[in-house]
Amino acid sequence: MSLQITSSQSDAGVMIKLTGTVDTKTAPDLLLKLTELDLPSLSELKVDMHEMTFMSSAGLRALLFAKQKMDQNSTLIVYGACDGVVDTIKKTGLTQAIVISEE
């Protein structure tokens, strides 16, 4: 029930790695991290979810918030997400905003 967030620069933009769970308690930490980025200038934001075991709607809201702050031609990509997270992103119709990579 904890969350660690690390970030790094990539050629195309920023990569964030999430370890642990993103729920009502920890989502504010994710939101804070996202707001510290210069979102309007990013062409790509990648979120590594290989080590993330759970994400509730609080986490989705944080990601959607970030995408809405980014340029409309930018991409927000999540990869390594578990089946439960992929399922949640799809059923809430957020695949318009969040690209799911199977990498």
Binding site: S56, S57, L60, R61, L64, F65, K67, Q68, Q72, T88, K91, T92, G93, L94, Q96, A97
Partner: peptide, 24 residues
């Protein structure tokens, strides 16, 4: 399903997903 699920990203309200996910 919240109506705004089909709305463009820029118009999606941030909230409204939790109870839908409970039921679903």
């Amino acid at each position: 399903s919240p109506n705004h699920i089909e709305a463009p990203v820029a118009l999606r309200p941030i909230g409204g997903l939790g109870l839908f996910l409970v039921k679903d």
